[in-house]
Write a protein that binds this DNA or RNA. Structure first.
Lengths: 205, 205
DNA sequence: TACTATCTATAAGG
DNA sequence: CCTTATAGATAGTA
């Protein structure tokens, strides 16, 4: 991937002149024809009127947002709760820890407003609310092991150094089952390589 | 065709890179923690150990995340509620509309079937596997990195869906070795872990 | 759905 | 806080 970037960069440098003009003449000048299409990527910060376009962008940006939220929670060890209602009224949510959305947001009530961050972001001081405990119940055996990502996530949350032998063994079990499941599917669908991970595209509003 | 060649080339490179990561991770485990230099800007998907660095990145990424959330709400006319607790315990929140966080999240309860988004990461799938307690006290940053984190990160960065059977087998091999290594260490060093495993499945093995 | 050209975010360093 | 190089996100297109 890095190599690819490098190659692209060279191309970009060749077109540096054009790139310069891009910045200067942000106002769209028609290019090559009579089409009044904007330069790629540029977006103004207001509601997209075209329904289809709005829908597409919602999907893409939503993915990106959730990914960012996840990364923040992992990289910085932060608790993140994110809820998005699509214009169609569908709900998407993400919570970094295993606490429920309601729980995390419930905590907001008890915290007095203090600081105001940029961008309409209210920051409140909540020191003392940090002793988090994961209280997970061992209930369903991962026979329907979703994917290795589960294992990845778990390994991130757990700390191997804190695991007992029993936990380790259990962990091993889970990983094996996950691998077996993936392999089985691979054998079944050598070409597809599995593209139905989080398959619940759902269909109701 | 040019495109075809390009795609082939990319795929090949990707596979090579994955293989390298597999090996690297394996080595890291054998040695009980490895340090590999990273290209600039590259980020591993796991908790940042250095406190200062984590703090800085938290600020930056938090800003970015909130900005994205804001853009999504405006561009796509979606309702967005976002709450972040910094590792230091400070709360940051954003709500797209003028409704309160509690209101938006209250709506979650009324919706029976929550759509959990793709992202290839099921953040909730790790629930129910173990009964453990995580100490998120950031003061106690462990000196050595846990071995399995290597795989956690790898599994997150790689896409299991895209792995060939050979790669999967290799992966399995590595994981098995890693687990064996960790177990061996545990036997050698039982006190390394106080056996406060209070789960209800003790002795299952 | 996939790709590519661009644009944006951000890791390092000053 | 500012700059630079790189990784990541994504708008428009096939």
């Amino acid at each position: 991937m890095a190599e690819d970037v490098g190659r692209r960069r060279m191309q970009q440098q060749q077109e540096e002149e054009e790139d310069e003009r891009l910045k200067a003449a942000a106002a769209a000048v028609e290019e090559g024809g009579g089409k009044m299409k904007r330069k790629r990527g540029r977006v103004e910060l207001r509601r997209i009127e075209d329904r289809t376009s709005r829908q597409v962008r919602f999907s893409k940006r939503r993915s990106g947002l959730f990914k960012k939220a996840f990364e923040l929670s992992v990289l910085c060890d932060a608790e993140v709760a994110l809820v998005v209602f699509s214009p169609a009224g569908r709900l998407y949510e993400f919570v970094s820890s295993d606490t429920s959305v309601e729980q995390i947001f419930g905590r907001c009530k008890d915290i007095p407003d203090t600081v105001i961050d940029d961008l309409n972001i209210a920051a409140r001081d909540s020191r003392g609310y940090c002793n988090i405990q994961l209280d997970l119940n061992e209930q369903s055996v991962p026979e329907s092991v979703s994917e290795l990502n589960s294992f990845a996530q778990m390994a991130l949350e757990l700390d191997v150094k804190e695991m007992s032998m029993a936990e380790l063994t259990r962990f091993e079990e889970i990983v094996r089952e996950a691998l077996a499941a993936v392999k089985a599917r691979l054998r079944r669908d050598p070409q597809k390589k599995g593209d139905n991970w989080s398959g619940q595209e759902s269909g109701k509003e």
